[in-house]
Amino acid sequence: MPGLTQYGYRDAMSGFFEFPTENARRILPAHLEPVEVHHGTSVFALTAFDFDKSEVGAYGEVVMAVVVAPLVKPGQPFPKSAMYPYLVATTTKAARDHAIERWHLPHWMDDVDIAFDRQKDHVTVHVKADGAPVADLTIYQYEWHPVSHLHQSFMKDGDANYLAHITMEGQHSEHENEKGSVKLYEHPFNKVLSIADVYDVPFREQWMRDGRQTFQPLEQLETA
């Protein structure tokens, strides 16, 4: 299909954490609505990618996002979920420039260090920016099954709002056994989060490996 952009990854691990809806609303643009797991409790998602194949080579990436309501249109494929990535960080300048130019994703403007500490049944991802720790994310595996899931990603760049349709393919493990964890550090990287109010155990842990992330061409949204 013309216009598709593909990225191959070795690992893509996500932790989904409860945090106050007030915090989510402070992060989100007005046209997006946070998904709540409970009344007053929204979802902060931290995802770490280990990309091994892309137009800009291999690189690491972390995505800080809020889970939001997907945009549903008649006759269009139905997405499984939607995100608003409010901060992305990469290990290379080339990857950062590419994502800013093509996807209008908001970035931490310096390279970050992302280390994947792979153990038998879990991985801990250590993220550092400017030499200081930003986040440590641990995700445990469950059963593995092949999937192909359609997701949406909303972006805002100045006054312009965008939507990307993203298909995630690969081996998929997902559970809600509350085994993983996150440690978020006081750092400018995390300035929009009330860290004490982010629950440090993910209610859901998702791990995809040996897969492919496919972006359809970006769609510009008309919002009020």
């Binding site: 609505e33 309501a69 945009l71």
Partner: peptide
């Protein structure tokens, strides 16, 4: 889509122009 990829939770939230879109 494969039905087993979805569950009730997927059909609660959805923005758009029409409440019947879901």
């Amino acid at each position: 889509p494969v039905f087993s990829d979805y569950d009730y939770s997927n059909f609660y939230y959805g923005s758009g122009d029409d409440p019947l879109n879901l």
